[in-house]
Design a protein around this nucleic acid. Structure first.
Lengths: 207, 207
DNA sequence: ATATAAACATGCATGCATGTATGTAAAATG
DNA sequence: CATTTTACATACATGCATGCATGTTTATAT
């Protein structure tokens, strides 16, 4: 085939990403060959290697495609709940949950990251990105907890980093288990109750 | 080489499992070939295919090796905390956390299941086993929550299944994040605080 | 208008992973 | 003691998957 216009090239690239997202989330990353992705996108392997250096670059492109919308939403939330740090944290968590539940791209990507890829050495960029994202989130959210302590909203004896780690772990675990079998329980309801329980427990600490 | 005694055969089998556990948890399941496992165990591929039908059977054998000790400990806990259902649930969770932290086999296996293998169709036995285990746990623990409700230990308006799902998700998430980088935070302390927070939040419910 | 480079397709070379079939020597069995 | 089976090793056949090199055609820049 011949050269397409720049616009067509972007379409091809997008088709490749769509195909990869679908196949990866269905069959797993390592069990999906570049050839299969290409065929599913209606092109040959040549097209893939033109747009992406290798499979890893493909996954990184997939991550890039859904990371931005997440960040955008968070900025909006910061304005609405500017006064209450706990409400902001809660809104963030529920927002992520909702996005996983409703946006197919996010859902597929998180499925890939949680269940359909191996965090090995040569996939280190993904691993590192996950870690960095979490750590950045923990650090960024840390001062929210500090503020909540100052305002007397939560028990001052709690370890701030631990509070965040627990909260994020709860969110991660909920997504993890739900994506294992989405028909098993309702994510939104379960997450809301669990997260509220956690926040509720932050206030008075008995032990 | 020649035939070994039955005792030696068990040693070989054990060596193979050890090698698989190590390699899988280091390099991921799909990036580890049967040949590599065999070589690491000091034998050839013939030995592996003699003891295990294929890679999947190998993983299942790995799961079998650590599943039993977990169950044993749970039975003991049921006796000590027979009166307080919440204390029992808490003890179970902390017990799992502690085992992940201290037993290398458990740690390696959970690492494999959470981070180093893909939950794809042909690995369905693992997927199913994970799901079944969780669902059985949820069902089994469900009546503990009901009992806690009856005793007035927790808010009666809470959804019982959701309570359990949230708790288990929290535990899963904590292990997930800790195994992502064990040097990042202390699992035991973080888990204790987070789980206590959750249980604390179950008592009075504002929303 | 021509040269350049983009956007792919095609083919090859290589390497590995799996599965299986077959060989073999010693242990187990009677 | 003879036979059978076990516990492996070895060899072979097959089938991808990857990476690269090399076309081919057309947009695009000058």
């Amino acid at each position: 085939m011949a050269r397409r216009t720049k616009e067509d090239a972007l379409t091809t690239r997008s088709d490749l990403l769509d195909a990869a997202e679908r196949l990866f989330s269905e069959k797993g990353v390592s069990r999906t060959s570049m050839n299969q992705v290409a065929e599913a996108a209606g092109v040959t392997r040549g097209a893939i290697y033109h747009h992406f250096e290798n499979k890893l670059a493909l996954i990184e492109a997939l991550m890039e495609r859904v990371r931005l919308p997440v960040d955008d939403m968070l900025e909006e939330l910061e304005k609405t709940h500017n006064d209450n740090p706990l409400a902001m944290l809660r809104a963030r968590c529920l927002n992520i949950i909702e996005q996983v539940q409703q946006d197919p791209h996010t859902q597929a990507l998180i499925t890939i990251l949680l269940h359909k890829c191996e965090y090995v050495d040569d996939a280190l960029p993904i691993h590192q990105r996950h870690l960095d994202g979490r750590n950045a989130c923990v650090a960024e959210s840390g001062w929210l907890v500090e503020r909540a302590k100052e305002q007397g909203l939560i028990d001052a004896s709690l370890n701030s980093q631990g509070v965040i780690l627990g909260l994020f772990s709860l969110v991660d675990g909920l997504m993890y288990n739900w994506l294992l079998d989405p028909s098993c329980f309702n994510l939104g309801q379960t997450a809301k109750q669990a997260i509220d329980t956690y926040f509720n427990g932050l206030m008075k600490q008995s032990a």
